[in-house]
Simulated assay, not measured.
Amino acid sequence: MPEVSLADMPGLVGTVVGVSDWITVPQSMINMFADTTLDHQFIHVDEERARTESPFGGTIAHGFLTLSLLSAMNFDCVPKIREQTMGLNYGFDRIRFMSPVRPGARIRGHFKLADTRFRGAGMLMTTYDVSVEIENEKKPAMTATWITIVQFDPKDRPETV
């Protein structure tokens, strides 16, 4: 995994900074997510009922499961910032679930750095335009605008910002 410095970040705005490895989403993962979140809606966990009563022809992953996998995708492919002491999830400006993720599908994240902004002495706010691709599908599973905060020692703040 390549590393970048805080000073490099503004120059990366507008570029795709990473594409994650593929993650397979088996029915067992969907079932465990349903158990964890207490969301047992039939379209996620009842294969027979979903096959006959849903417009999807079978079960599908929770949109929030796809969203939650962004952390693993990010960790897999987004360059590490040398000076970072901690990273925080600040939130999302926009999330759209575009296509269902079916059991057994493979998905991966594409991360485009949309903006960076230094805040205070020891924080960098980063905004990523993220798209989650489904293997062999034209339409993405999800798109999002994700905001994170990189914390660093104020002594490491680039003088040019």
Rank of each mutant, 00 (worst) to 15 (best):
K112R: 12
S71G: 12
S28F: 13
E159K: 13
L70I: 12
R106T: 08
M32N: 08
A72E: 08
D153G: 07
N89A: 04
M123Q: 15
E133H: 09
G104Y: 06
I81D: 04
S68G: 14
M142Y: 01
I23E: 04
Q41F: 02
T66G: 05
F33E: 09
R82D: 13
M142H: 00
V78D: 02
A141S: 08
V17A: 06
E3C: 08
D35F: 02
S71E: 11
S131T: 02
F64K: 12
Q84L: 12
V150T: 14
G18M: 05
A144V: 06
G18P: 00
S68F: 10
R106C: 04
P100F: 07
G109R: 11
I134L: 11
P158M: 06
R82Q: 11
N136H: 14
I81R: 10
M123Y: 07
L69V: 13
R94G: 01
L70D: 11
T116Y: 06
T126H: 10
V4N: 13
L69A: 15
I43Q: 10
M9T: 12
R106E: 15
S68N: 12
H44C: 09
V150S: 15
T15M: 11
H110A: 14
I43W: 07
W22Q: 04
K138W: 05
M32W: 15
E135W: 08
I81P: 09
E159T: 11
T36S: 15
C77I: 07
P154A: 09
F97G: 09
P55C: 01
V16I: 12
V45G: 08
H62V: 07
S54I: 04
G14L: 00
D35H: 03
P10Q: 03
R94F: 07
A50L: 09
F75D: 15
I107T: 08
S131Y: 01
P103E: 14
F42Y: 08
F42V: 01
P10Y: 03
N74G: 08
T127L: 08
P140H: 01
D153S: 03
D35W: 02
P55V: 04
T116G: 13
G58T: 01
P26G: 13
M73N: 10
L70W: 07
H62T: 03
M73A: 10
R102C: 11
R82C: 09
K155P: 01
D21W: 02
N74H: 14
V19D: 00
E133P: 00
G63N: 03
S5I: 04
R157L: 11
R106K: 08
T116R: 01
